[in-house]
Write a protein that binds this DNA or RNA. Structure first.
Lengths: 201, 201
DNA sequence: TGACGAAGCGGACTGCGGTCCGTTAACCTT
DNA sequence: AAGGTTAACGGACCGCAGTCCGCTTCGTCA
């Protein structure tokens, strides 16, 4: 889909290596975007701004990241990978070893924290285009994990219920709870965990 | 928020009546939009197209409907009101008289049908701007209804669970299930009803 | 090391959503 | 019925996301 550092060709395989200027520009763009987003807020930065700040043409920006959402995806990549690692091989209850229900609760909590910490960026990555949320590589990962845990607990229709759960964790919805309804993050997390557990039956 | 025919000033109260040219233009615009959306698809129609086809300036379009999503909301208004009437005073299990759990299932089914029948329009109304979905008057209605039914069944945290349920019924998600995953509407409806019932406990 | 092919670059350009503000005409008042 | 008030109109205008295509530079291979 969208090229990000995660999906770039890897040295040694049959795939061609990333060209030097391309690599340099990719880093420049990411650095510039992060700086601008931090100081002006995600909404206050245009793609022209990013290109100019990175000292790069707009075409380069789009060739690399596809669209504004793709840029957000790339910026989120690092944090998401960390969480994914913890889920795959970290300590329980998030990592393997705990009962599926506990792991699901731990995931909801950890994912919610990640979304909250990067709300604007996640929102951008999920809403830049209708349906974007469901098309990122990261989303496929979260879904796969939830499906597995739901199936493990003999939930009916784990695929669909994983999607329902993740729909409830969409940035748009989380932002509404947190900002518009002023819900406390911890209380919200507990309530969502309980709802997730309900979906197990 | 967004002015729609539903919120227009009503004759007789202290509020000022809609001017004659305004009423004429409103109808022209809605007719033009419906015609264009039907023949060219929602995505293939620009606001300039609508204005031109309606024989009206663009400013008029925006003054009346706020943005493209507002136009979609207005077009959906009729169908949504019908469903709302059935929920408030139609026959059970959708209307009053049946157990809350049955009414919830009936709502999920009926709402899903409405979304499916007008997928592109609902999608537009929910995604024209991030968070639009949660801000329409209709959404407040669906939410209120679900909250009530959940509370009636002694569900924990009915407010939050209503939001989770409705997030799962968002047009973006429904389109994904129907179009990308090719799920059968009936099967999907049954699975979602089951998930909704799980949220009751 | 020179030269060739292709990946990558960059910025002018396009199209569309949304705004602004000078003009028009509906409705009220007397 | 004439005049004044003001809501409503309309289309030129703006900003930004995203595209296109002629030019540049990288990496390779002889």
């Amino acid at each position: 889909m969208r090229p990000s550092s995660a999906e770039l060709p890897v040295l040694g395989s049959g795939v061609i290596r990333e060209r030097a200027d391309a690599a340099r520009n990719r880093l420049r763009i990411l650095a510039a975007a992060e700086r601008l987003f931090r100081t002006h807020g995600v909404a206050g930065v245009t793609m022209d701004d990013v290109a100019a700040q990175a000292g790069v043409g707009k075409g380069t920006l789009y060739r690399r990241f596809g669209d504004k959402g793709g840029l957000a995806v790339a910026l989120l990549d690092q944090r998401e990978r960390e969480l994914q690692q913890r889920m795959l091989s970290g300590p329980p209850p998030l990592g393997p070893g705990a009962p599926a229900a506990d792991r699901l609760g731990a995931f909801v909590r950890a994912y919610l924290d990640l979304v909250e910490a990067q709300l604007d960026l996640v929102l951008l990555s999920e809403t830049s285009t209708p349906g974007a949320r469901l098309r990122t590589g990261a989303h496929a990962f979260w879904r796969q994990h939830c499906r597995y845990l739901l199936a493990e607990s003999d939930a009916t229709d784990p695929e669909l219920r994983a999607d329902v759960l993740l729909a409830g964790l969409a940035a748009e919805q989380v932002r509404y709870w947190l900002r518009d309804e002023q819900r406390d993050l911890d209380v919200l997390a507990r309530a969502l965990c309980a709802a997730a557990l309900s979906l197990l039956r």
